[in-house]
Design a binder for these strands. Sequence first.
DNA 1: CTGCTTTCTTAACCTACTTCATCGTCTGCT
DNA 2: AGCAGACGATGAAGTAGGTTAAGAAAGCAG
Lengths: 194, 194
Amino acid sequence: MDTKPLLDYLRRYVDLNQEEEVLFLSKVRLRKYLKGQYVVQQGDVCLYENFVLSGCLKSFHMDPEGHEHIVMFAIEDWWTGDLGSFLSQTPASLNVQCMENCVLAQLMYSDLQELYIQIPKLERFFRIIIQKAYVASQQRVVQNLSMPAKDRYLFFRKLYPRIDQRVPQYMIASYLGITPEFLSKIRSQLIYEQ
Amino acid sequence: MDTKPLLDYLRRYVDLNQEEEVLFLSKVRLRKYLKGQYVVQQGDVCLYENFVLSGCLKSFHMDPEGHEHIVMFAIEDWWTGDLGSFLSQTPASLNVQCMENCVLAQLMYSDLQELYIQIPKLERFFRIIIQKAYVASQQRVVQNLSMPAKDRYLFFRKLYPRIDQRVPQYMIASYLGITPEFLSKIRSQLIYEQ
DNA sequence: CTGCTTTCTTAACCTACTTCATCGTCTGCT
DNA sequence: AGCAGACGATGAAGTAGGTTAAGAAAGCAG
């Protein structure tokens, strides 16, 4: 498993020379996780920003009653972690857990700070990542306020076609903010409608 | 109306010398808006990041059926605008409208880019602002998924004590994602409970 | 003070969604 | 094979929240 997908991703947003790319990669650490393992735990400081080379993860918040609320999924070519915790180096409010065996490319906070100094262009790169995360989150707020569950589910399928197949239904229900039973009902209704 | 509150805010996060502060302020433009005026309109590119010196604004998304969904409020010492649109200079998905006469300190996108070069420390400042906005947005996602309307309202009152008094109830309802009638029911229930 | 508009409340009825309980199906174990 | 545990489907009954419609308060112009 190599870091080519990460480089490809990087090159989409910022133009580094050979030397800079080597320096960047020297700070990247590959790490394997098994299905079920936690990459970030609620309450801990999120030490790494993680680029998914292979596998599938969920990030979720556990509320005081012990219910999971899935905030996002991540598969190949996505970033994951608790970005808020990572950026401010304060305790995470999210858990990030592997739903399959995963290979992640990890960037440590302190290394990233060094990289910013050595390769200022990277500031731009990470600003874009934060920005995209922010826009996505805000869009999700508006959707949860304005759409009924069925529409949110249809939107979800359009937005993440590859994830819909790969993730158990009750987790999609959690992502949508409804019960698995109701998602089941929505699905059977959608099949009937065709 | 002067820019002291903006300077105070700035100083909380970044340490500028006299010269840098003067340069920063030279790029800031004060502007008055009347009640009802739009600072940003859905579809336009958001040209300014706005610091509220006085007044009260709402940012909301208008859905295809013509319903408003309030994403956030802003009063003195808050930033407002469509941050996603501003950062990427793409069309805004939000409207920002004054609910009272307002005085805003505006920073134009191109001026901010220049400032980043002249005062690199400002990158840090704005990264923190984006970060805070992102964390708040994500927290809102989790809350909308996990809490019933009553709890969300109680949380809202705790988080924005000054805004609760200042904003008509039906807008708070829109922010919470419920109808004004239901908010009224919640409120009378809360009074009864004491 | 009067009348007009905008906001808030109340109440009856309706719907989207939840809860709970049951059953069928598919895994993977040993 | 045979069992256990996870997952999904379905249906009955309950609840959170929406809709509609009417009236009471409250702001504000004349």
